[in-house]
Amino acid sequence: MASYNLKINGKEYKTTVDDDTPLLWVLRDHLGMTGTKYGCGVASCGACTVHVDGQAMRSCVLPISTVANAKITTIEGLSEKGDHPLQLAWDEVDVPQCGYCQAGQIMSAAALLKKNPKPSDADIETALSGNLCRCGTYHRIKEAVKLASKK
């Protein structure tokens, strides 16, 4: 057990957990931020994607001890009013079905657009190929990323 100061979505948080606790469970269980989802726990589905210093990372395999000084952004903090171009595009294209994978999809896409504001189809496929969607919403995800990249 150790005490950690965390910078999440521009705010400071303090939490006391085991060093090996993944960021995902700190967010969900200790800080009450449940927008980041659990899907596999082994970095194989992308549902838990967050940004760590601007990079898309799978929070289910990130021990809290490794991100203590990093700047973390979760889906809750992607934009203040839920109006990030991707969030708007996701609604406009009406992407979600069950919706469970979508926070992770959006966070992966947001990291992509930051680095590459005008991605090609292939760029989108590469950046999002680690995000699974059992409902099969991939066509609309692609369309929404493209739409957001035009704004």
């Binding site: 969900r28 931020m33 659990y38 809750e76 991707l86 969030q87 996701w90 609604d91 009406d94 959006i106």
Partner: peptide, 19 residues
């Protein structure tokens, strides 16, 4: 018509069983 829960889903506010 767009999904009524889209704004909740895209901001991480939709509450699923696990949440």
């Amino acid at each position: 018509v767009k999904g009524v829960d889209n704004p909740l889903i895209t901001t991480g506010k939709a509450i699923f069983g696990l949440d």
